[in-house]
Design a protein around this nucleic acid. Sequence first.
DNA 1: GGGTTGACTGTTC
DNA 2: CGAACAGCCAACC
Length: 105
Amino acid sequence: MSTAFQEAVWAKLAEIPRGKVTTYKEVAQAVGSPQAVRAVGSACAANPTLVEVPCHRVVQSNGDVGGYARGRLAKINLLKQEGVTVTPDGKVDYLEQYLYRFHPR
DNA sequence: GGGTTGACTGTTC
DNA sequence: CGAACAGCCAACC
């Protein structure tokens, strides 16, 4: 079972184009709760399908890939596969370049 | 109904 | 630059 909040988050994640990434904060803002970044993370963790929902394209605002249901390494590997530069430290380099924003100014 | 936990963020030391 | 503290929201027990 899922809540409206989680579905809203998943819907936003589905909008992220391949080769791009977004931050939990951006998603939180997109769903209307810019402070609910923790809740967004929980929603991603509760995501039922890892293929339909590109949760691996969500990273932390500081560039760190954050966590992943299958492990950080798997997440890093997926991002690299999509053309995102990830440092061995598990951080996305050139984040601003790959960052996908829901709130364009 | 109340308290704890978590795929986080920003500030401060 | 790295580690620690506090703040926030939604879900779970």
